[in-house]
Protein backbone atom coordinates (compact mmCIF):
# COMPACT_ATOMS: atom_id res chain seq x y z
CA UNK A 1 0.00 0.00 0.00
CA UNK A 2 1.01 3.61 -0.41
CA UNK A 3 2.45 5.61 2.47
CA UNK A 4 -0.43 7.20 4.42
CA UNK A 5 1.47 10.48 4.70
CA UNK A 6 2.84 11.28 1.25
CA UNK A 7 0.66 8.99 -0.86
CA UNK A 8 3.62 8.66 -3.22
CA UNK A 9 6.06 6.05 -1.92
CA UNK A 10 5.35 2.46 -1.02
CA UNK A 11 4.75 2.09 2.74
CA UNK A 12 7.47 -0.08 4.23
CA UNK A 13 7.18 0.77 7.92
CA UNK A 14 4.33 0.12 10.27
CA UNK A 15 4.11 2.58 13.16
CA UNK A 16 1.92 1.96 16.18
CA UNK A 17 0.84 4.81 18.47
CA UNK A 18 -0.87 4.54 21.81
CA UNK A 19 -2.64 7.74 22.76
CA UNK A 20 -4.93 7.78 25.80
CA UNK A 21 -5.13 4.01 25.50
CA UNK A 22 -6.27 4.15 21.86
CA UNK A 23 -3.90 2.23 19.62
CA UNK A 24 -3.57 3.29 15.99
CA UNK A 25 -1.38 1.91 13.26
CA UNK A 26 0.06 3.98 10.43
CA UNK A 27 1.72 2.62 7.29
CA UNK A 28 4.58 4.92 6.26
CA UNK A 29 7.49 5.02 3.84
CA UNK A 30 10.88 5.28 5.52
CA UNK A 31 11.33 8.86 4.27
CA UNK A 32 8.14 10.10 5.93
CA UNK A 33 8.87 8.13 9.10
CA UNK A 34 12.22 9.89 9.28
CA UNK A 35 10.62 13.28 8.62
CA UNK A 36 8.28 12.65 11.55
CA UNK A 37 11.34 12.24 13.75
CA UNK A 38 10.78 8.57 14.44
CA UNK A 39 14.40 7.63 13.87
CA UNK A 40 16.15 10.43 15.71
CA UNK A 41 19.27 9.45 17.56
CA UNK A 42 22.47 11.03 18.79
CA UNK A 43 21.28 14.64 19.03
CA UNK A 44 23.89 15.63 21.57
CA UNK A 45 21.98 14.96 24.75
CA UNK A 46 25.33 14.62 26.54
CA UNK A 47 24.68 13.20 29.99
CA UNK A 48 21.42 15.08 30.35
CA UNK A 49 18.79 12.66 31.57
CA UNK A 50 15.92 14.40 29.80
CA UNK A 51 13.25 12.18 28.39
CA UNK A 52 11.91 13.06 24.97
CA UNK A 53 8.68 14.67 26.12
CA UNK A 54 8.46 16.90 23.08
CA UNK A 55 8.80 13.92 20.77
CA UNK A 56 6.04 12.17 22.67
CA UNK A 57 3.75 15.17 22.52
CA UNK A 58 4.35 15.65 18.82
CA UNK A 59 3.69 11.99 18.32
CA UNK A 60 0.26 12.42 19.84
CA UNK A 61 -0.71 14.24 16.68
CA UNK A 62 1.98 12.98 14.36
CA UNK A 63 0.29 14.12 11.20
CA UNK A 64 -0.59 17.69 11.86
CA UNK A 65 -0.89 18.13 8.12
CA UNK A 66 -2.87 14.97 7.38
CA UNK A 67 -6.55 15.81 7.34
CA UNK A 68 -7.87 12.90 5.29
CA UNK A 69 -8.91 15.43 2.70
CA UNK A 70 -8.98 14.83 -1.04
CA UNK A 71 -5.59 15.77 -2.50
CA UNK A 72 -5.11 17.66 -5.73
CA UNK A 73 -1.32 18.01 -5.84
CA UNK A 74 0.12 18.67 -9.29
CA UNK A 75 -2.76 20.69 -10.82
CA UNK A 76 -1.74 22.75 -13.85
CA UNK A 77 -2.98 26.27 -14.62
CA UNK A 78 -3.64 28.27 -17.76
CA UNK A 79 -1.15 31.11 -17.29
CA UNK A 80 -3.12 33.58 -19.44
CA UNK A 81 -6.11 33.66 -17.06
CA UNK A 82 -6.60 36.97 -15.23
CA UNK A 83 -8.76 37.47 -12.15
CA UNK A 84 -11.77 39.52 -13.37
CA UNK A 85 -11.92 41.45 -10.10
CA UNK A 86 -8.28 42.58 -9.69
CA UNK A 87 -6.62 41.76 -13.02
CA UNK A 88 -3.86 39.66 -11.46
CA UNK A 89 -2.42 36.63 -13.24
CA UNK A 90 -1.10 33.51 -11.53
CA UNK A 91 2.42 34.60 -12.50
CA UNK A 92 1.89 37.77 -10.42
CA UNK A 93 1.17 35.57 -7.44
CA UNK A 94 4.35 33.62 -8.10
CA UNK A 95 6.34 36.87 -7.95
CA UNK A 96 4.86 38.28 -4.74
CA UNK A 97 3.49 35.22 -2.91
CA UNK A 98 0.28 37.20 -2.46
CA UNK A 99 -3.08 36.98 -4.23
CA UNK A 100 -4.69 40.16 -5.54
CA UNK A 101 -8.13 39.96 -3.97
CA UNK A 102 -10.59 37.52 -2.38
CA UNK A 103 -11.99 36.74 -5.87
CA UNK A 104 -8.63 35.21 -6.88
CA UNK A 105 -9.60 32.19 -4.79
CA UNK A 106 -12.44 31.48 -7.28
CA UNK A 107 -10.43 32.40 -10.38
CA UNK A 108 -7.48 30.14 -9.55
CA UNK A 109 -9.57 27.62 -7.63
CA UNK A 110 -7.96 24.37 -8.79
CA UNK A 111 -4.37 25.47 -8.45
CA UNK A 112 -5.14 27.02 -5.06
CA UNK A 113 -6.57 23.66 -3.89
CA UNK A 114 -3.32 22.04 -4.93
CA UNK A 115 -1.23 24.71 -3.21
CA UNK A 116 -3.22 24.53 0.03
CA UNK A 117 -2.85 20.76 0.04
CA UNK A 118 0.89 21.24 0.03
CA UNK A 119 0.94 24.01 2.66
CA UNK A 120 -1.75 22.80 5.05
CA UNK A 121 -2.17 19.13 4.14
CA UNK A 122 -5.68 19.82 2.85
CA UNK A 123 -7.79 22.62 1.38
CA UNK A 124 -11.12 22.36 3.15
CA UNK A 125 -11.88 24.72 5.98
CA UNK A 126 -13.23 23.14 9.13
CA UNK A 127 -15.05 25.61 11.26
CA UNK A 128 -18.71 25.47 11.97
CA UNK A 129 -18.74 29.05 13.22
CA UNK A 130 -18.30 30.62 9.79
CA UNK A 131 -21.73 32.15 9.28
CA UNK A 132 -20.94 35.85 9.16
CA UNK A 133 -24.51 37.05 8.64
CA UNK A 134 -25.83 35.26 11.71
CA UNK A 135 -23.04 35.81 14.19
CA UNK A 136 -24.20 36.21 17.73
CA UNK A 137 -21.41 37.93 19.61
CA UNK A 138 -22.80 36.64 22.90
CA UNK A 139 -22.16 33.06 21.84
CA UNK A 140 -18.40 33.41 21.91
CA UNK A 141 -17.61 33.21 25.56
CA UNK A 142 -14.47 32.38 27.51
CA UNK A 143 -13.81 28.67 28.11
CA UNK A 144 -15.98 27.23 30.86
CA UNK A 145 -14.33 25.77 33.92
CA UNK A 146 -15.13 22.26 32.65
CA UNK A 147 -13.55 22.96 29.27
CA UNK A 148 -10.42 24.27 30.94
CA UNK A 149 -10.22 21.25 33.23
CA UNK A 150 -10.69 18.88 30.26
CA UNK A 151 -7.79 20.52 28.54
CA UNK A 152 -5.65 20.18 31.69
CA UNK A 153 -6.70 16.53 32.03
CA UNK A 154 -5.58 15.75 28.48
CA UNK A 155 -2.24 17.39 29.15
CA UNK A 156 -1.65 15.47 32.40
CA UNK A 157 -2.51 12.17 30.71
CA UNK A 158 -0.03 12.94 27.92
CA UNK A 159 2.63 13.68 30.51
CA UNK A 160 1.68 10.46 32.31
CA UNK A 161 0.90 12.36 35.54
CA UNK A 162 -1.97 10.07 36.42
CA UNK A 163 -2.43 11.05 40.05
CA UNK A 164 -2.98 14.68 39.15
CA UNK A 165 -5.12 13.59 36.19
CA UNK A 166 -7.37 11.56 38.50
CA UNK A 167 -7.93 14.59 40.74
CA UNK A 168 -8.87 16.71 37.73
CA UNK A 169 -11.16 13.96 36.41
CA UNK A 170 -13.00 13.83 39.76
CA UNK A 171 -13.41 17.60 39.73
CA UNK A 172 -14.85 17.44 36.19
CA UNK A 173 -17.28 14.66 37.22
CA UNK A 174 -18.41 16.81 40.13
CA UNK A 175 -18.96 19.88 37.95
CA UNK A 176 -20.64 17.85 35.20
CA UNK A 177 -23.04 16.28 37.71
CA UNK A 178 -23.90 19.75 39.00
CA UNK A 179 -24.53 20.99 35.45
CA UNK A 180 -26.70 17.96 34.62
CA UNK A 181 -28.83 18.54 37.67
CA UNK A 182 -29.59 21.95 36.22
CA UNK A 183 -32.23 21.36 33.49
CA UNK A 184 -30.96 24.38 31.54
CA UNK A 185 -27.79 22.47 30.73
CA UNK A 186 -27.50 19.34 28.69
CA UNK A 187 -23.79 18.76 28.37
CA UNK A 188 -22.63 15.33 27.37
CA UNK A 189 -19.70 14.11 29.41
CA UNK A 190 -16.76 12.59 27.59
CA UNK A 191 -14.82 12.11 30.75
CA UNK A 192 -16.12 8.70 31.79
CA UNK A 193 -14.67 7.08 28.70
CA UNK A 194 -11.36 8.94 29.07
CA UNK A 195 -11.10 7.77 32.67
CA UNK A 196 -11.77 4.14 31.69
CA UNK A 197 -9.03 4.15 29.07
CA UNK A 198 -6.41 4.68 31.69
Amino acid sequence: MLCEKCHINEANISVKTNIHGVTKTYQLCSECAQKQGLFQSGFGFESFPMSNYLGQALFNFPFVTLNNQPKTIGTQIDKSIRCPACGQKYTDFRKTGLFGCPECYSTFHDVICSMLDQIHGGHIHNDTQIVPQNIDVEKVKPLTEIEQLKSELKEKVQLEQYEEAALIRDKIKELTAAEKSNPANNIESEIESEGDEK
Partner: peptide, 15 residues
Protein backbone atom coordinates in the same frame (compact mmCIF):
# COMPACT_ATOMS: atom_id res chain seq x y z
CA UNK B 1 -15.65 31.00 1.49
CA UNK B 2 -17.44 27.79 2.47
CA UNK B 3 -14.58 25.68 1.10
CA UNK B 4 -11.47 27.70 2.02
CA UNK B 5 -12.70 29.62 5.07
CA UNK B 6 -11.42 33.16 5.65
CA UNK B 7 -9.62 34.39 2.55
CA UNK B 8 -6.22 36.02 3.02
CA UNK B 9 -3.63 37.63 0.76
CA UNK B 10 -1.12 34.87 1.46
CA UNK B 11 -2.28 31.24 1.23
CA UNK B 12 -0.35 30.42 4.43
CA UNK B 13 -3.02 32.24 6.50
CA UNK B 14 -6.20 31.03 4.78
CA UNK B 15 -8.85 29.03 6.67
Amino acid sequence: DQEFGYLTACPTNVG
